[in-house]
Design a binder for these strands. Sequence first.
DNA 1: CGGGATTTGTGCGTATGTATA
DNA 2: TTATACATACGCACAAATCCC
Lengths: 231, 231
Amino acid sequence: MPVYLDIATQLDNDVRNKYQAGDYLPSESQLALRFNVNRHTVRRAIDELVATGMVQRHQGKGNMVLRQPHDYYLHAGAHFTGNLLEQGSLPRSEVLQARVIIANSKIAERLNKPAESKVIHIRTFRKIDGIPRTVIDHYLSDTTWWVVLKYFNTGSLHQFINKELNIELQRKNTRLRAQMPTNEDCRLLQINSNIPILKIKTTNVIKGTNIVAEYSSSNTRSDVIELVMEH
Amino acid sequence: MPVYLDIATQLDNDVRNKYQAGDYLPSESQLALRFNVNRHTVRRAIDELVATGMVQRHQGKGNMVLRQPHDYYLHAGAHFTGNLLEQGSLPRSEVLQARVIIANSKIAERLNKPAESKVIHIRTFRKIDGIPRTVIDHYLSDTTWWVVLKYFNTGSLHQFINKELNIELQRKNTRLRAQMPTNEDCRLLQINSNIPILKIKTTNVIKGTNIVAEYSSSNTRSDVIELVMEH
DNA sequence: CGGGATTTGTGCGTATGTATA
DNA sequence: TTATACATACGCACAAATCCC
């Protein structure tokens, strides 16, 4: 094992045990003295911590500890069930935003509407252990629903629509991919930029028709989540 | 602007215009001569390309160009359809490995077998545009199938089992997550470690029974892939 | 199989630039 | 302004992986 990886391991331990988020590591020169290596070697070691998102470099100041890395691992309780695919159905979702917006071209296309149409945008999220794990953006085609939907604030969106508007939504297709989070994703999900997220997009029609009523896009932090579908 | 960023920009242009995926860059020593800098500086420049996923390092061989710019964009043709979830069904898969192994504890558990049982391991992969996009590990519980399965070399594994053994496999459940690739994933999929992968794991029973016959685990590069399911 | 040539990976020492306090 | 800390760059040496004869 290269020396720099040894040092990276020790620094990793220090960060976990001795430092808190916001603290600064000893200077690279001091660390070089302490580990009896050249400063380049210390820098290479710190590169590893930077790559994993534990440390941030600040020229002229020092290398700052970003945060205590949780020991993330999957446990059975953290599993989402297949109904995550039915994104309007999450029973304990909460509303972050709800408003009428001008659809961008992609959303307009998914909803089969002309460019720059007005659509309803509702952003909900679901927490596990007090931390937001999934953020879902719902885009609803029919703005006349707004008079009712503006009162939606918690629970299952699809159930709400069913009850208040007497309309049943049916999932038509699902698109799924993994990607690295945007800055906004990082903020909403409270994660570092090095954790991949699952992005699930669905289009939903009014049951029995081909009328696309809803397009939804969800982002889920994937480090503590495993999507399980029983067939 | 630092010298290494200048060189990175030039190399980036070269990669886009002069090289194809799979090509190797000139050696670092040659590039150092060409740009009249130290080899360290060239390495620092190549680090930039590695970080953006354009180039992969191979110790002892050289620095390989990973992909062309058009690969950065999802295009409709690159979409997998939902039958990716039925991992034995990929019609144009090829076999990388096929052998009998001792199952580790996780695989044994999934197959409802005692620890350290023997199982059949078949690794297949699927290419798009000549590049491996998905690598699937199949683990089959019944080693008596080996006398037949050792002759499987291409096509659909489930079809082969159906035809040769007269056994129909049925998907029981699917687990799905996103994660960063291991070193082996990077090698097999020819990607950099900064691209997340989709991991899909299925258990399959013998149709009409509860006998778990197969556990499969697939890794798919997620940068050019979007999983589409029609309902 | 061995051995030598090539190429990337690691590490040291030194020097200088740049940002911060 | 000065001192400190990180950023860039050169040169040298050797290790480790790969390739080819």
